[in-house]
């Protein structure tokens, strides 16, 4: 089944076309990687898909429903969760509380029920707390549960954000550079975490720079360069694609 269907999405910033007529599918149960040099438009594409930004053209269908024009929290409630390249944690809350916010994504606002401590509010509270604990365990960071997010090491912050996304009970997660700031051990653990996420039945679209990680973990790779899709296919094929090689070599010579 097609989980996410992106068709002809374009997003411009003034004269710059950050995402240029991009189309692709993500199938249920896949880990798909989105790669490309810095500034290729990966994060912008993520924003357009998750309702944080609105594309100028194109459509985004998630589980058969149109997403363009919907607010981000609606996408979350439909089962599409995400993380950010610059982690967006709630610094003055503990890791456990951070994940609890995600766990309550589908609960009612409940001002009234909470103020009066109605049984429904208390039951949802317990459920959210249990979900948060389970996901901190699942991502292997339960020992950080009571640490304030502001005091967490960068690698753990990434995992807390992933746990928070998973706590919303998504069918699909979009992870924007989850390995950035991680050391080698943590990156290896992240590969395991991504596989575990997929095995739990959650489809994954991941932006990643670490080619080793991408080749190892992904079922399919989508390559963007200067806003355009330049290649799409299984890792073995992408590795040999002359356009991809050129794009990455180009980036290296730019840096040097």
């Amino acid at each position: 089944m097609t989980m996410l269907k992106v068709r002809g999405v374009s997003r411009r910033f003034g004269g710059l076309t950050a995402v240029d007529d991009v189309s692709f599918d993500v199938h249920e149960g896949q880990i798909k990687a989105l790669i490309g040099p810095n500034g290729a438009g990966k994060s912008t594409l993520f924003n357009c898909v998750t309702g944080f930004d609105t594309p100028h053209e194109g459509s985004v269908e998630f589980k058969g429903q149109q997403l363009v024009g919907r607010r981000p929290q609606v996408a979350v409630q439909m089962g599409l969760a995400r993380t950010f390249q610059n982690t967006q944690l709630f610094d003055e809350m503990t890791a456990h509380e951070n994940v609890m916010v995600g766990a309550a994504a589908r609960h009612a606002a409940g001002f009234f029920a909470a103020a009066l401590r109605l049984p429904t509010a208390l039951a949802q509270e317990q459920e959210a707390a249990a979900t948060a604990s389970r996901l901190l365990r699942r991502t292997g960071i339960e020992e950080w549960a009571d640490t304030f997010a502001a005091d967490l090491p960068a690698g753990i912050r990434r995992l807390v954000e992933i746990a928070r996304a998973l706590a919303t009970d998504p069918s699909m997660v979009l992870l924007d550079e989850p390995a950035a700031g991680l050391n080698a051990t943590e990156t290896a653990e992240l590969v395991e975490t991504l596989r575990r996420i997929r095995d739990d039945g959650v489809t994954v679209l991941v932006v990643e720079h670490d080619m080793g990680l991408v080749m190892e973990v992904s079922d399919e790779i989508l390559v963007l360069d200067r806003g355009k899709k330049i290649a799409e296919g299984p890792p073995r094929m992408i590795q040999k694609d002359p356009l991809v090689i050129a794009a990455y070599l180009g980036e290296e010579s730019d840096d040097g």
Partner: peptide, 14 residues
């Protein structure tokens, strides 16, 4: 507290 801490994070948490 979440929306105070990070509005983007809050939106992404539903």
């Amino acid at each position: 507290r979440a929306l105070h801490g990070s509005e983007l994070g809050a939106l992404a948490s539903g």
